[in-house]
């Protein structure tokens, strides 16, 4: 039977097929899926996160690792019953790019790193109007709402989302995180966001701080 170390290494090196094979091998060996995820997949991604933070791993390599981890999750998640899955989650995140802005890459990268950090992520896409964010918060009840914008012209719309949450009496029910190239801590403070992250790795750290 394969080992957790091999599974971790396959995640780190981004080998999807190998992750699938090892996950199945561990299942065949009688290991429970709720043990394989925290002992094999997530520790592998944790190493990836650390190596990305120190500049040892590059973004495409991180994406390959995340894809490998997701291949494992696709096999294991359906086998987990009851509340075990949500109990394992570090928290729920809804993330999207604000209205008028169709930039996807940075937002997706943050979502991916959040998933790697153990969060359950719901990506609601690009060019998202304020009322759609409100709707998602109402329905999904996330712990964190992530707002992304790349254009200098669309960052003011982040404030609109926060105002819309206030009007719907949802502002105190969700942490709001903002990010994107033109965003600064000062801007985040000025619109009343709970956190700002300058890159995808620090976004995970900030999210964990918000959850603690």
């Amino acid at each position: 039977m394969a080992s957790y170390e091999e599974l971790q290494e396959s995640v780190i090196t981004g080998q999807k097929d190998k992750v699938e094979g090892i996950a199945n091998s561990l299942l065949d060996g009688g290991i429970k899926p709720r043990e394989i995820i925290p002992k094999g997949l997530l520790p592998g991604m944790s190493v990836v996160g650390q190596r990305f933070k120190t500049g040892e791993m590059f973004i495409p390599e991180v994406i390959a690792s995340a894809a490998a981890m997701n291949r494992g999750l696709e096999i294991l998640k359906p086998l987990i019953v009851g509340n075990e899955l949500s109990d394992m989650s570090a928290g729920k995140v809804v993330i999207g790019t604000v209205q008028g802005d169709v930039h996807n890459i940075g937002k997706s990268l943050v979502g991916m790193m959040m998933e790697s950090g153990g969060f359950t992520v719901m990506d609601i896409g690009i060019d998202v109007p304020a009322d759609k964010f409100v709707e998602a918060v109402e329905e999904e009840k996330p712990n964190i709402l992530g707002l992304s914008a790349l254009l200098t012209t669309t960052i003011p719309l982040m404030k609109d989302v926060i105002e819309a949450l206030k009007r719907s009496n949802l502002r105190d029910k969700v942490h709001v995180m903002v990010g994107g190239a033109p965003i600064t801590q000062e801007f985040a403070d000025s619109i009343g966001a709970d956190a700002y992250a300058a890159d995808a790795v620090s976004a995970v750290d900030k999210a964990k701080q918000l959850m603690s």
Partner: peptide
């Protein structure tokens, strides 16, 4: 160019 280590353009 996207810096592959930091994600900064």
């Amino acid at each position: 160019t996207l810096d592959m280590a930091t994600g900064r353009s």
